[in-house]
Design a protein around this nucleic acid. Sequence first.
DNA 1: TTAAGTATAATTGTATACAATTATACTTAC
DNA 2: GTAAGTATAATTGTATACAATTATACTTAA
Lengths: 222, 222
Amino acid sequence: MAKIERDESENYIYSLRGKVFYRIQNDILNGVYKPGESLTEKKLSEDLGVSRTPIREAIMQLELEGLVKSVPNKGAVVKEITAKDIKEIYTIRMMIEGLAARWAADNITSEELDELKEAVDFEEFYTIKNDPEHLMKFDSKFHEILFKASKSDPLMHLLKTFHHYVHRARIGSFKSPIRAREALKEHRAILDAIINKDAKMAEELAIEHIRNAASAYSHNKV
Amino acid sequence: MAKIERDESENYIYSLRGKVFYRIQNDILNGVYKPGESLTEKKLSEDLGVSRTPIREAIMQLELEGLVKSVPNKGAVVKEITAKDIKEIYTIRMMIEGLAARWAADNITSEELDELKEAVDFEEFYTIKNDPEHLMKFDSKFHEILFKASKSDPLMHLLKTFHHYVHRARIGSFKSPIRAREALKEHRAILDAIINKDAKMAEELAIEHIRNAASAYSHNKV
DNA sequence: TTAAGTATAATTGTATACAATTATACTTAC
DNA sequence: GTAAGTATAATTGTATACAATTATACTTAA
């Protein structure tokens, strides 16, 4: 009989701690808990109906990922993300994504390449349909596959701890249909470079892609 | 009366959790706990004479930093770091340190500049004395000041979660007096670029500095 | 009215108790 | 002797109890 297996790498999402972590993270990202607000363990445990233990552990994780800052006897204070932060995040992302694309070109498997093609096809579909929500999902998928295909543990670890920063900086950058079409073109170009095993080109295109995303973002804000 | 203040940013080091974390981290880095070995909460709590609670929290932190991997009912397994990992770590470090130097050139304060000069002077002293241990300390200090001076929260966060990787990859690269003298020269060059507020040059020199460190490391290994 | 001091409440840090899951060792049937 | 099944032990996950620290509110004196 086929054994039902969990994804071991993300095993903790089935625990209370994991659920609590994702819940609080989402509530912060969606503005339920606002920057400067302090979250005490007691309040959270009452809000979510669990004991303090999983709350404590989730808060620790949130702090290590930089979403909150624990201050003694005050609770976990939700960190603010400034325009300066976002600019820097995009700069850092250029390098990380550039490396991912470069190493992916060298190490991608044919299965992953198929996944990548599929993700871009879906992206095209939802770009035409002008559906920002699904678009964001497959944009994320494109980048995720790239990281997986890079086969670099240190790089993947780096991205993991940086992930929420990326997420925060990216919200709202999919509303413009013009930018969506450009992003699609850029993804196709990166895909082609990877198909041709042109690592240098893939890196340059990925860097340019993030640079354009950053510029679209800041333009959006004005 | 002058109030005795703790360094708030590192407040947790005074807690049991913090002490436990540093203890286990060091024991892993120094090979007391070897790759593949699994550390159970019970064993650790008996070894260190504290309850499971701070142990659990320290293990969580170790996992988020990538030193161990928790597997259910097996304990925290110490991760191995491969030669491939180290090569990739150096590549990633080139970019991170490059950014730090670039932004430091733009944002450094005169106090920080003084600290940086002092660190390099100490480095020179211990290079001449051929004292690898102190040398490593002030090499670390040089890079720490650079990050602080960059004034970038996202970058500092990135380094924090990447720190142990750097540490692991760097062990033993200070034994060669030849490389020590080169490293000193490179640090002086970076310092000069920062004094001259030449951000581009500082970045290039920092990247080159890490590239040389990587090459010295791999040469050492052969 | 304000400042200082004190009692109380709130909050976190640590230890421990209990439950649920999983591994291990042993027994038994073939 | 081996495989299957079962009982036991080990391990983690969660809840709770207690201690220590810190904030807060209140009282009192000037």
